[in-house]
Nucleic acid binder design. Structure first.
Lengths: 245, 245
DNA sequence: CTTTGTCGCGTTGTCTGACAATGTGTTTAA
DNA sequence: TTAAACACATTGTCAGACAACGCGACAAAG
């Protein structure tokens, strides 16, 4: 047998442009916050025209690797948990996942998260949780939007204290998907506010006392309660999640 | 304070192109598998030039909404779990997450997944799990690559039977991140193969008997065992995960 | 001294027009 | 009938152009 040749790369130039810039970001040559050369300079350095450079840049932008900074210059950025969460939830929504699927993961992770919070939350973090909870309790029960907002804020605040970006990202992406439907649930169940406030109180107190099992148990109960709300509000859990942005 | 104005929309054309096409995909006007018009036709319909159309297409491609099909025509696709998982794991890796963070989620979800599998796996699914497990057991303990491959295959096969795309996606993305390090662990611990085979056997039997608690317990033990392997192999769990694609 | 106008300059956003490379379908030759 | 040849449509890439925009510097106005 003769020599084995590698198949020659037949990728379009704009893909190569993407790969070239991505590689330097990954390897650390281009640090976060660094300015990329201008499009004109990139043309020179890479030996292609602006058309190809620009098409490559679009992919980098969509991938969350670069963004437009001061004077519209391209700035390197590491994907933020926000970006990753948004991309994941968008992908899932487009992929046609159902509430059931989301809920199954939610019901597993949130109790666990509450347990973790009990051992990791700082004094300030607990205070903030109490504050959000009390604000929720203070609303009139007809102020649905504010109630929803507070509920989400509570979850956000709690996950933010976990010091675990993976967990935060997953939970945030799940939040994004159920946000819209949550409003319907709260609007349809008059006692929703009271029950949420109660659960948040119990969870927060358990966290402040570093009582992980209780925090976990109450969070599980809370999630379960919300799920029951879905059937009350006649939301079909086996239906695809609709897009809400 | 005076009136609050909404910022006027001043998005570049290529963004509007992206949004226009995305909107029709989301609303279902363009179904999965449908062919998009050619670039030239898009120019006419949208009233912009090919440059702008093409830049918009790059974003759509990166978002996983379209791909090149027969005769290089653009085809609408819904984001696949593979794509979402790959994007998430890439984002996390670039974001500099640590093994600890990944592991925490892994250790929560996999036992739960094993429990679910006990109630959802089909006969054929269980058979496949047994088959993968037996293949792993048959390798020589020096065949590290094959052992790693089988371990991953077992996890993949198990998650695939859950009928939950969200869960599958998350677990897959986590798998992608630990894959490379797993090889080091297995290479460093001589008894790894035996222990993995044992755990997989117990888990699979529990699943085949629809014994969710046992499946869950053994999976938890299995994960815990693997984690212990990491310290034996002197992998620093608090270090950033390196990229391995 | 702060705010507002304007000017120049570099960069991005968009367009026009062109051509090579590639894939498809059809026709022609073996 | 198969295989080669060809025309055709489409994508990938290039060159060159210009308007729009953001920013800093500087001057004018309050």
């Amino acid at each position: 047998m003769g020599h084995n040749f590698k198949p020659v790369s037949r990728e379009p130039l704009y893909v190569k442009v993407y790969q070239a810039i991505e590689a330097d970001i990954l390897s650390g040559v281009l640090e976060e916050g660094a300015f990329l050369p201008t499009e004109g300079e990139l043309c020179e350095q890479l030996g292609v025209t602006r058309s190809s450079v620009r098409e490559g840049i679009r992919s980098l932008e969509q991938a969350g690797l670069v963004t437009r900074g001061a004077a519209k210059r391209l700035v390197v950025q590491r994907p933020q948990t926000q970006d990753v969460a948004a991309a994941a939830s968008r992908g899932w929504t487009l992929g046609g996942v159902t509430f059931d699927e989301v809920w199954e993961v939610l019901a597993t992770l949130y109790p666990h998260a509450a347990g973790l919070a009990a051992s990791r939350s700082s004094k300030a973090g607990v205070d903030e949780l109490f504050e959000i909870r009390n604000r929720l309790a203070s609303y009139d029960k007809s102020e649905h939007d504010k109630i929803v907002q507070s509920s989400v804020a509570y979850f956000q605040c709690l996950t933010g204290q976990l010091n675990n970006r993976v967990l935060v990202t997953v939970l945030q992406s799940l939040n994004m998907m159920i946000g819209a439907s949550l409003r319907r649930v709260i609007a349809a169940t008059p006692q929703a506010q009271k029950r949420i406030a109660r659960a948040q109180l119990e969870i927060t107190e358990a966290i402040s006392q570093r009582d992980a099992p209780t925090a976990q148990r109450w969070m599980a109960k809370h999630i379960d309660d919300l799920k029951r709300g879905y059937s009350v509000a006649r939301v079909d859990m086996s239906a695809e999640i609709f897009r809400s942005d």
